[in-house]
Design a protein around this nucleic acid. Sequence first.
DNA 1: CGTCCACAGGAATGACGGGCGG
DNA 2: CCGCCCGTCATTCCTGTGGACG
Length: 413
Amino acid sequence: MSSDEIIDNVFDSYLSGPKIFANRDALRIDYIPERLPHREEHLKVVAGVLAPFLRGQRGSNLFVYGQTGTGKTAVVRFVLDRLQSRSEEVGSMARTCYVNCRLVGTQYRVLASLGQALGVDVPFTGLATTEVLSRFKESLSSRRILLIVALDEIDALVKEYGDALLYQLTRLNESLNYGRVSIIGISNDLRFKERLDPRVLSSLSEEEVVFKPYTALEIIDILRERAAVAFQKGVLENSALALCSAEAAKEHGDARRALDLLRVAGEVVEREGSKQVKDIHVVMAQKSIETDRVSTVLRSMPLHSKLVLCGAYILSAVGDKGMVTGDIYEVYQELCVQSKTESLTQRRVSGLINELEVLGLLNTRLVSLGRYGRTKRINLGIPAESIRQVYSDDSWISPLLNYTPLSLRRGSH
DNA sequence: CGTCCACAGGAATGACGGGCGG
DNA sequence: CCGCCCGTCATTCCTGTGGACG
């Protein structure tokens, strides 16, 4: 069979197979649905805070807090959309602007996107931040605009750059003759408030909404709404849907996780050419999401992290469980010799081990062995097999997978 | 009961690379 | 295009520490 034929076969079987999705996008996280089940109260609060804008008055600033996948972004964007269109109907000067701080990146670019929302021309670069700010002010003031700024993942911005920009924005109204600004800050890290100047904090959280995680039952309702749009009729089994929500509920009620799971399950079914999404597909989806995650980090890690992990892999295979930092460092150094790489210091490797732990690739526990020192006991956080699998087609690492450490060469110890 | 092991992990400093402003 | 600045990664040097051993 020629390559062309192979490809055509795949395409054909895809096209001729049963159709699973009606509108796959409805399961994506940036999709704004028609209804937001179990967020009626929050919608009311947010809409209430913003309502004064339609009468040309400034509403309060608002701080929205909640863990990932609790509907913060969806609720805020939903209300902003409605407000924008109502505002145009009644001819108010209220405008809205939504910015994801983490995606946009820097203070400058956040400010630039605010400017663009007003139609101000801001070059990608070249202007001082204060210059952008004053153009922004000028535009607000001259056109008497009431602007609602939603800053999503605001914690990322503050973590990187401090609260200087927020300070400017919260104080903007004092120096404006006409036009007003309100801020909606969205964060999933409550501790980030501690980093704020008290003046900024009190101004930002004039009003506050906390989004609690969804319960498993609530997630079922959400999935049902989305699934009705996303899937063809009769394709999705109820129990599969319930399983998705149960799994997501385990993870602090993360609706985003549930939607991902459901989408991937649908894709699994599509690929294998079956007609229905069943429990088994959800389980497969879960595995596939996890292995995807693991194999991307494993592949994208810097070389020395790979070598350290590889050392841990070798030691764990030897079975001599109870490896500690020193053991890994020793093997790591040998691996460096093998691959003709300069080795890093123990201090650094100790840091790398901590990073690997954060990624969930290693489990570590601080232990004291008394007379024999104080160190970290380390285990693999993922199956050894997945490490072997991913690294066996890495030309740098694969020759090292079967290396035998010197300490074991003569069979002693 | 004090020692002292084998590290943990903080602070200061240096090398490097990439983007920004002029 | 160049110099400057800033962030990241790494090194060096350091102080801290739980508990078995003597």
